[in-house]
Design a protein around this nucleic acid. Structure first.
Length: 393
DNA sequence: AAAGCGGGGTA
DNA sequence: TACCCAGCTTT
């Protein structure tokens, strides 16, 4: 592995402006110094994650698998590392390479993605795999080439370029925005400051180990430069950091006030057949929870007054109240009154029966699992391998 | 440029 | 509880 000192060399031929302007503030390090300190810290505190190669593998010249880097980066969009680990391992076991994922039915991918959120990511993931597999030759190795693929934007194209191909790219995510805004005490609100932050990162990216530099800046934000109670005493950049010296790192980044979330209400109807099957339907491909599976519900109205009742049910039955569940989406909160009824017969048009042992494998978003659980506790849990035999298909 | 889009880890 | 996260797409 390359010693961190190699990164002291300037990242490009034009380094004349690299250290200008910062020395008048508490931020005293040049971009090269900061990259060097960060890589030294990363060599010691580097975390082992399912999509990373180990330092031992790296020393043997093993390179990361672009497929695994791409898959992990898409999963990590607005999603924490802890939440991603389980899904990542399940995906690579099921679909070890991009050809395998391209050969899979979209419906299977949606089911495997259920619970991870932002479901347009799953559809774009599948579309991207189809494109890459059909074209052959693997993933593009440039930011511009990657940027054209579905589900790959500015962050993900830079991350794959740096991490999978070890090419210089400015990788700016939420962690990096926080680190940079504190390093330079940037008081411009985040939505406007993104250009300025990117310029700082572009200036700091080292020519050597740009992939490790990208992961180091994100790891620093995830473990040391946290949103609240940052561990500044442990930070390799504390001497460089304007916000730490002035004592208020938690005040950065500055954000615009966010609008409060309205409350919507509705009712959900859990229909159970005599054998335990549940009546489900598929949501439209686009929009909220696009392409996912649901139980029948009323519209989710903005009116928060009045009680929802079985009067709004999709068909007459002996509806019994089964409690109320709450769920918070990105831009509104939802309360659903849940009703349950036992019905036998054919599924209505647009609906289907899901057998008891199949329910845990359906593409059910969390809010729908909550509704089903309210009516039938345990219905969405995976069946015990001892008590239930799955038919071999 | 702004809005739409989930779920969970963390303090 | 509130905050905000390894963001992208559409309008």
């Amino acid at each position: 592995m390359a010693p961190a000192d190699q990164t002291r060399k300037t990242a490009s031929g034009d380094s004349s402006t690299a250290a200008s302007g910062d020395s008048s503030t508490a931020a005293s390090g040049s971009g090269d110094d900061i990259a060097s300190r960060l890589l030294g810290w990363y060599d010691i505190h580097h975390r082992e994650l399912p999509w990373r190669i180990t330092p031992r593998e790296h020393a043997r010249g093993v390179r990361p698998d672009p497929y695994r880097i791409w898959l992990s980066e898409v999963m990590l969009q607005q999603t924490t590392v802890e939440a991603v680990k389980t899904y990542f391992r399940a995906f690579v076991e099921k679909w070890p390479d991009v050809e395998a994922l391209a050969a899979a039915p979209t419906e299977d991918v949606m089911k495997a993605w259920a619970g991870l959120g932002y479901y347009s990511r799953a559809r774009n993931l599948k579309a991207c795999a189809d494109l890459v597999a059909r074209r052959g030759g693997g993933f593009p190795d440039t930011e511009a080439g990657l940027r054209e693929l579905p589900g790959i934007g500015a962050y993900t194209s830079a991350a794959i370029t740096a991490i999978a191909f070890d090419q210089p790219a400015a990788v700016v995510d939420g962690n990096v925005e926080r680190v940079i805004s504190r390093l330079f005490s940037i008081t411009t609100p985040l939505s406007e400051a993104k250009t300025e932050i990117r310029a700082h990162v572009e200036r700091m990216v080292p020519a050597t180990r740009p992939g490790d530099f990208a992961q180091a800046t994100m790891d620093l934000g995830a473990t040391i430069c946290t949103p609240r109670r940052p561990r500044c005493m442990l930070c390799p950049l504390r001497e460089d950091c304007s916000a730490t010296v002035s004592g208020d790192p938690e005040h950065f980044p500055v954000r615009l006030p966010k609008a409060d979330k309205p409350l919507r209400r509705g009712a959900a109807f859990v229909v159970v057949r005599g054998d335990g099957a549940i009546l489900l339907r598929k949501r439209p491909e686009r929009g909220l929870l696009g392409g996912m599976t649901e139980v029948p519900t009323t519209d989710w109205t903005a009116r928060a007054d009045g009680a929802t009742t079985e009067a709004a049910a999709p068909f007459p039955a002996n509806w019994r109240p089964a409690g109320r569940i709450a769920h918070v989406f990105t831009h509104f909160a939802l309360e659903l009154d849940v009703f349950r009824a036992e019905v036998n017969g054919a599924a209505p048009a647009g609906h289907f029966w899901s057998l008891a042992h199949e329910i845990s494998g359906e593409a059910l978003p969390t809010v729908m699992k909550k509704a089903i659980e309210a009516a039938i506790p345990g219905a969405t849990k995976k069946p015990s391998p001892l008590s239930t035999k799955r038919p071999h298909d």
